[in-house]
Amino acid sequence: MDTNQVNLIRDSFVQILLDSDAAARLFYDRLFELAPDTRPLFQNDMAEQGRHLISALAKIVTGLSSLDVMLPGLCRLAERHVDYGVNDRHYAVAGNALLHMVTAHGGLAIDSATVLAWKTAYAMLADVMIAASNDYRGLSDAA
């Protein structure tokens, strides 16, 4: 990712923060529409879950310019997702839900370059988390 892509993501994320509760609801509505099997993975109050989502996204968006610093946190996040029951296939569905949320709440800041920046960032982060998940599963299977 280049600096311009990081800036596009950050600029568009500000719009999401302006109505983060609605953005989170949109994300989860889309996720459950695309993958109804994910609904039972969420045992918490969905408003609280939405706040966790936006908080995690804020950390990720903030950390995009220093991925090496963010890597250990992403690996821990991936391990928690394994414990929640998330499978590798869920990452593509979550990516779709994320882009749906971004385009709906990004306002005028959303153009093709911004969508491409989000897709690029998500693909990169999902690859890291899937690899960490698989490593974690391997460690869990060996134990």
Score class of each variant (00 low, 15 high):
Phe32Met: 08
Ala123Tyr: 07
Met101Lys: 09
Asp2Leu: 10
Tyr84Asn: 07
Gln15Ser: 13
Asn7Cys: 01
Val102Gly: 06
Arg137Gly: 05
Val82Ser: 07
Ala35Lys: 13
Ala23Asn: 13
Asp19Ser: 14
Asp21Gln: 06
Tyr91Lys: 12
Ala24Asn: 08
Ile130Asp: 04
Leu139Ser: 06
Ala121Ile: 00
Tyr91Leu: 06
Gln49Asp: 15
Thr62Pro: 08
Ala58Asp: 09
Leu116Thr: 03
Ala23Val: 10
Arg89Cys: 03
Ala142Gln: 09
Thr120Ser: 08
Arg25Cys: 12
Leu18Lys: 14
Ser20Trp: 13
Gly107Pro: 02
Met124Phe: 13
Asn134His: 11
Ser65Asp: 14
Leu41Asn: 12
Val93Met: 14
Asp19Cys: 08
Leu34Thr: 01
Asp37Arg: 05
Leu116Cys: 01
Met124Asn: 12
Val115Glu: 08
Asp2His: 11
Arg10Thr: 01
Asp19Asn: 15
Ser65His: 14
Val6Trp: 06
Val82Pro: 02
His105Thr: 00
Val86Met: 12
Leu116Asn: 03
Pro36Phe: 14
Arg76Gln: 07
Ser20Leu: 07
Trp118Asn: 00
Leu34Pro: 02
Leu26Cys: 09
Glu48Arg: 15
His90Val: 02
Asp37Asn: 03
Ala104Thr: 04
Lys59Pro: 05
Met101Ser: 06
Ser65Arg: 11
Ala131Cys: 03
Gly63Thr: 10
Asn44Arg: 12
Leu18Ser: 13
Gln15Gly: 11
Val102Ala: 10
Leu31Asn: 10
Ile60Asp: 04
Ala131Gly: 02
Gln43Pro: 09
Glu33Cys: 01
Val93Lys: 15
Ser140Trp: 03
Tyr91Asn: 06
Ala123Val: 02
Leu31Gln: 07
Tyr91Ser: 11
Lys119Gln: 04
Asp135Trp: 11
Glu79Gln: 15
Arg137Asn: 04
Arg137Phe: 07
Met46Arg: 15
Ala47Ser: 15
Ala94His: 04
Ala109Met: 05
Ser65Phe: 11
Asn4Thr: 02
Arg76Pro: 01
Asp83Trp: 10
Val6Ser: 03
Val61Phe: 09
Leu53Ile: 03
Arg89Ala: 05
Val14Leu: 11
